[in-house]
């Protein structure tokens, strides 16, 4: 009660997501051809631990809740994770997108939801081509169900968390046509 999004909000998210996907698809070649910063080393597809560290950062990966680092005022991407920049995700093949999605969903099955995880899940969903392969289909359903479980257990009305979970459930159910999982107002 009070956590479920309105139909209007859900429709807006689907429309915005669709526009983001169109822009991504239109400019993918440009972003693929851009040089990455020398510190961005994308792991091999089969390197599960490498991808978790890459996306979530060593801090979240190791479960260290350290807020600030006084000795270094700049952003240390190794510690906080690399964000899903277009220049990074445009280089990922469909197979890699699906594989990394699987790694992160498996992580989320056991760990807390974080903003870093939310951004990557959203970005990977934006890269996932339709029609879905059977394995991607089952993966994203698993993701939406996990989001629902976490939402049910959330007692503190953490608005950012609930919103992020609602967004993922909404995109899986309404953009990727898994209507039985949708929040019905």
């Amino acid at each position: 009660e009070g956590y479920s999004p309105t139909l209007k909000w859900q429709q807006q998210q689907v429309a915005d997501f669709s526009a983001v996907r169109q822009s991504l698809s239109k400019h993918r070649n440009y972003w693929q051809s851009q040089n990455l910063d020398s510190n961005v080393i994308m792991p091999q597809s089969e390197d599960e631990e490498g991808w978790k560290k890459f996306c979530l950062g060593e801090r979240v990966y190791s479960g260290i809740d350290e807020q600030s680092d006084n000795e270094n005022l700049g952003i240390n991407y190794i510690k906080v994770g690399f964000p899903p920049l277009l220049s990074i995700v445009s280089r990922m093949s469909q197979a890699t997108v699906t594989t990394v999605l699987e790694y992160l969903i498996s992580w989320f099955g056991e760990k807390k939801f974080t903003p870093e995880l939310g951004r990557w899940l959203y970005a990977l969903l934006a890269c996932l081509e339709k029609p879905l392969l059977p394995e991607a289909h089952s993966l994203i359903r698993q993701l939406a169900r996990r989001c629902s479980e976490v939402r049910v257990l959330e007692e503190n009305k953490n608005e950012e968390l609930i919103s992020a979970l609602n967004l993922i459930i909404c995109l899986v159910s309404r953009y990727f046509d898994q209507r039985d999982l949708a929040d019905e107002p």
């Binding site: 239109k26 400019h27 277009l86």
Partner: peptide
């Protein structure tokens, strides 16, 4: 116009996610 300027921003996906998350308010 907007779409074009967004296309040259490497952090479009991050901004789109953050905007979507900020748009929901619990009842």
């Amino acid at each position: 116009q907007n779409e074009d300027s967004d296309a040259w921003d490497d952090s479009v996906l991050i901004k789109a996610y953050d905007k979507a998350v900020a748009s929901f308010k619990t009842a």
